[in-house]
């Protein structure tokens, strides 16, 4: 399954920045610099961005324009980052958000 449109009948080739790598829950993924983090994740087949605080339900892209905040993740250690409007940069560390933190942080809190 490839989610990237190679050539569009109206828009032609869609211009992208340079190819960069970033990590998603420890896996190294490729994307294009400057595109929304969510676009790179989508292209890599990632659907679940976070699990909710109360019910632990999976959430992903919903509005794609930064309004609904469903696609928030932990980016470079910072939670609640709207991945649909945050540009991707080389070496970013993107983690699935559980409630308001990354999974590893949750464990640490549990032990403290």
């Amino acid at each position: 399954m490839n989610s990237r449109i190679k050539e569009h009948p109206i828009l032609g080739k869609i211009e992208k920045g340079r190819r960069v790598t970033f990590s998603h829950d420890g896996n190294i993924i490729e994307g294009f610099e400057g595109e929304p983090i969510s676009a790179a994740l989508k292209a890599a087949g990632v659907m679940v961005h976070r699990h909710t605080q109360k019910y632990g339900a999976p959430r992903g892209i919903f509005c794609a324009i930064g309004r609904c905040t469903d696609c928030v993740m932990v980016v470079d250690g910072k939670p609640n980052i709207r991945t649909c409007i945050t540009p991707l940069a080389e070496g970013m560390i993107v983690e699935t958000q559980y409630g308001v933190s990354a999974k590893s942080t949750n464990k640490a809190e549990g032990m403290a």
């Binding site: 989610s3 990237r4 569009h8 676009a39 659907m47 679940v48 892209i61 794609a64 324009i65």
Partner: peptide, 20 residues
Amino acid sequence: PGVIGAGAAQTMMNLHGVVP
């Protein structure tokens, strides 16, 4: 995940070149 607004579909495919 997979339930999206129509605007999201447009944004993803026509601005970012990724199909929803």
